[in-house]
Simulated assay, not measured.
Amino acid sequence: MMDPILLDLPTKIETERLVLRIPQPGDGKVVNQAICESIEELRPWLSFAKKKPSIEETEADVRIAHAHFFLRKEIRFHIYSKADGRFIGTVRLHHPSWKVPRFELGYWIHTKESGKGYITEAVEALVQYAVEEVGAKRIECLIGTDNKKSCKIPEKLGFTLEGILKNEYTNGEGVLIDSYVYALTPGR
């Protein structure tokens, strides 16, 4: 595989209802608002949700994600409604192993946007992008075993449940949790 820094990856993906684009400086305020309004729902699953971040902390994270996209350390997209431009959530490919290439899939949604199929639509688009643009041979999705709602997404999209990782990580509450490992292996 060529050096991933040389890949000319699109910075925007469009679906029927959504626009996914890489994080941009200035996105911190709207992302911060979504995190703060969704913190109680995010905390049981995501380590970054230990506390409500400041706008400056979120803006710094957005700028790091912007740089990481071009350095190929992480491929994150912010999700926006095509109809009115409102921020919906994020999807990302992180922990890359470019030799395979393999990625871990992650996502979260603003609580008020949950249950509308947006994350499934965005994840499906990101998986297609990973396979077609990046050449992914393995996409993993690790989900807390108690997070049944989130498990529905990889199940709908044809991922295989490969097993359970015991004591895999600590969530936003500092609780050690087990995770399901879902994987998609294109071409196998």
Rank of each mutant, 00 (worst) to 15 (best):
R17P: 03
I13Q: 01
R43F: 07
E56I: 14
A67H: 15
I75V: 14
A34F: 02
Y169F: 15
R17G: 01
S54A: 07
G158K: 00
R72K: 07
A122F: 11
Y182C: 02
E121W: 05
Y80L: 08
P23Q: 01
S47I: 14
K82V: 15
Y118S: 05
T58D: 06
S47A: 11
G26F: 14
G117H: 06
I109T: 15
L126I: 12
K82E: 10
A49Q: 03
A49R: 04
P53D: 10
P23N: 01
D3L: 11
A34Y: 00
P186L: 14
R102S: 08
S81F: 05
L161S: 06
V30C: 08
Y180N: 13
T160K: 07
V134N: 05
M1P: 13
Y107D: 02
K149M: 04
E140F: 08
V181C: 11
E14W: 11
E74R: 02
L9W: 12
S114L: 09
I88L: 01
I88D: 04
D178G: 04
T58L: 07
P96G: 00
D27F: 10
E133M: 11
C36I: 15
T185M: 15
P186H: 09
E59V: 08
Y129M: 04
Y118C: 05
D61N: 14
E140T: 12
P4L: 13
E16H: 13
A130Q: 03
M2V: 15
H78N: 13
N171F: 03
V131Y: 06
A67L: 14
K156P: 02
F48L: 07
K166N: 09
A183S: 09
F70N: 03
I153M: 01
E41H: 13
E113Y: 02
I177H: 12
A34N: 02
P25I: 12
E57T: 11
G89T: 05
L184M: 14
R92D: 13
V30D: 08
Y80K: 04
P4Y: 13
G135I: 10
V181G: 07
F87C: 02
P186E: 14
S97W: 15
S81A: 09
H110F: 12
A136C: 08
H110W: 15
R63P: 04
F69H: 09
A122T: 07
E155W: 03
V134W: 10
W45L: 08
I88T: 01
P10S: 10
A183T: 05
V123H: 00
R17H: 04
E74I: 10
G85C: 06
W98D: 02
M2W: 13
A60N: 15
L46S: 00
L157G: 00
E168P: 09
L165K: 09
K152D: 03
V100H: 04
F70W: 12
D8G: 12
T11A: 10
R138D: 03
T145S: 02
K12C: 13
R76V: 12
L6W: 13
H110K: 12
G158E: 01
W108K: 00
G163T: 04
